[in-house]
Design a protein around this nucleic acid. Structure first.
Lengths: 342, 342
DNA sequence: AAATAAAAAGTGATCGATCCACTTCTGAGC
DNA sequence: GCTCAGAAGTGGATCGATCACTTTTTATTT
């Protein structure tokens, strides 16, 4: 039934024979159509079309030692960076690269090992790591490696790490509303983004002379937010919670309600990610809108630049995170400061 | 600095020379280590280790005409099937395949065209389509193609289509609570799963002699749920909403609240997907837990079976969807039937 | 111990493209 | 009409594996 489809694809030699030229001429045609005499070009063009010829990319790769393929390494887990991935893969395709997505079970060492294997297999021209990896294992790979959570030369944080400014803005805003005692329910500390937000949180609390009741190391889950609130001693004085993301924030809000605390009347809660659900929740979540597509695009752009040997890949699209104030934040119960409600 | 890493990787011939055997013997060692004399095997083993040899997979592919690579084709859009993808890629790796993820902009025809191109490029041994594609274009590809939303030989629905039973269960349950007038806010009708749920919804309404106030064709977004409720005429009598997914359900609930209707007092709402956020929302969302990993695993298992030429790929792990009753559903305002609250 | 079968190892061709070192056109200038 | 530079075209080598065959070694039987 599918015999027609299964017939062996035609080769460059068959095209050459039909066109009455040598295989080298066909090869030239494939790489640069303008470098041929118009008459010759037409003959080849016709033969290619007649035989429905497609170059065998494996054979090409073997000879050129380039595969035109990139690998993106992810961790398996609750956080699948789908939007970044889609954007990254889009940009890569436009640049003539195919994208292989490798999601690896296990920790940073397992991922580093897989990266090593990928690099040596000769199957990819470059690797983008979208999750933390063990540095030691990845010294000299032979192919460019970009880590989406690393810094650029000017120590500007990129990709996953971006967001320090937003944490500052959140804490400062809550402080201006009159909040004095904070709680941070952090994300899985294996993630650079979680570590970064945690440290910026602590730093800002310190700088503003506020009080942090503590940092709960969570795992990005709603349950971790719920449990954090459930474990809070009565009268601890916490009036504002900075959650690792919207899901955690939702758990926090539910935990509060189940203890009889209303949000935002008794407790203000900030999320992160601007998920669609949080916008329609009650109370609607105050959060940070993250341009995930830009993250993905920038990361791939950096990788492509490194592959081409270009030195400084200035992020063409600047990642813009935006703090969004909705209903889950308000002045604390007995705000003594002048309530500068937004 | 990275000179050590950039040196040309060693070949099978170098290993052979160091081991004092022929390259064929090394090749044999690579495919089946047990087929060698122990003494020879040790020599080769040593040489492989000493040179840190890794076979060049491109060269291997060229000779064997197998790439050990599968492509998974996705649509770009709000629905990124991350969990299915991760599970699928995991299973594929265990079977010795690498996975290339191709997300394609545009509609079913664009995806079909890309699939055609992939198949002919000789770069993949099989293709899994995780989104709807235009059938006509994909007649004879030359490589196996599995569509995750299609049926198996026994016409049991698989993958995305699974879920008919759950829609029935939801409507029957709501009916047993006393609801008579329903609304369905459907997902993007380009998705097979959305079409399937819609038709099962209508069929069940019909079969039970209930009344459907209508079906709103949405786009999986919270806004579409919100708008559906906002557009509802007063006194339409709708007391139960079956939403396309949890996000839509959240929009519905918010829309109801903004009209002064309380959920579940005035309106019952069912979601789909069992997202973490819905569990902690207030009211907690009644929903359907979907085993996305199983979907991904099953789809890849079918593809692998087809590649191997095995005929009947019995789904080793059966997809189990589970209807979960939480706080967003209750008897209607003036339930005249016997309220059989769960 | 010789005959024979079976297992192990070696030889050279092959996959389908690109690239290198040449040879053969083409056409402008005198 | 001739020369000659440069463009266009050619044949064969090459990339690094596997595979079909052939040859050598080892094991088994009589």
């Amino acid at each position: 039934m599918t015999d027609a489809g299964r017939k062996r694809p035609s080769t460059i030699h068959e095209v050459a024979r039909l066109a009455g030229v040598s295989h080298t001429t066909v090869s030239r045609y494939l790489q640069d159509k303008d470098n041929l005499k118009p008459k010759t070009r037409l003959k080849v063009e016709y033969a290619v079309k007649a035989l429905d010829y497609r170059p065998n990319l494996v054979a090409r790769s073997m000879r050129t030692r380039r595969t035109n393929r990139l690998a993106i390494v992810l961790a398996t887990g609750p956080h699948f960076p789908g939007r970044q991935l889609a954007a990254a893969s889009e940009v890569a395709h436009q640049a003539g690269y195919q994208v292989e997505v490798v999601s690896v079970e296990g920790g940073p060492r397992a991922r580093a090992a897989r990266i090593d294997e990928l690099a040596r297999s000769g199957q990819v021209d470059g690797i983008l790591a979208m999750s933390s990896i063990d540095l030691k294992v990845t010294k000299s790979l032979g192919v460019p490696l970009v880590r989406s959570e690393s810094h650029d030369e000017k120590l500007r944080v990129l990709g996953d790490l971006a967001g320090a400014a937003e944490v500052r803005e959140i804490v400062e805003h809550l402080s201006s509303l009159g909040h004095r005692t904070f709680l941070h329910v952090a994300g899985d500390q294996e993630y650079a983004s979680a570590r970064n937000r945690k440290s910026v949180y602590l730093e800002t609390i310190e700088r503003l002379g506020l009080h942090s009741f503590g940092v709960i190391d969570g795992d990005w889950s709603g349950q971790s937010g719920y449990d954090a609130i459930a474990a809070l001693p009565a009268g601890c004085g916490v009036t504002a919670v900075v959650a690792a993301n919207d899901v955690v924030a939702m758990g926090v809000i539910r935990g509060a309600r189940d203890r009889g605390w209303e949000v935002p009347r008794d407790l203000s809660v900030f999320g992160w990610d601007d998920e669609d659900m949080g916008r329609f929740a009650t109370p609607a979540l105050s959060t940070v809108a993250v341009d995930r597509e830009a993250q993905g695009r920038n990361a791939i752009a950096r990788l492509l630049a490194e592959i081409r040997g270009e030195p400084a890949p200035e992020p063409s699209v600047h990642t813009v995170n935006r703090v969004i104030h909705r209903e889950s934040t308000a002045p604390p119960p007995q705000a003594d400061g002048r309530s500068e409600a937004q």
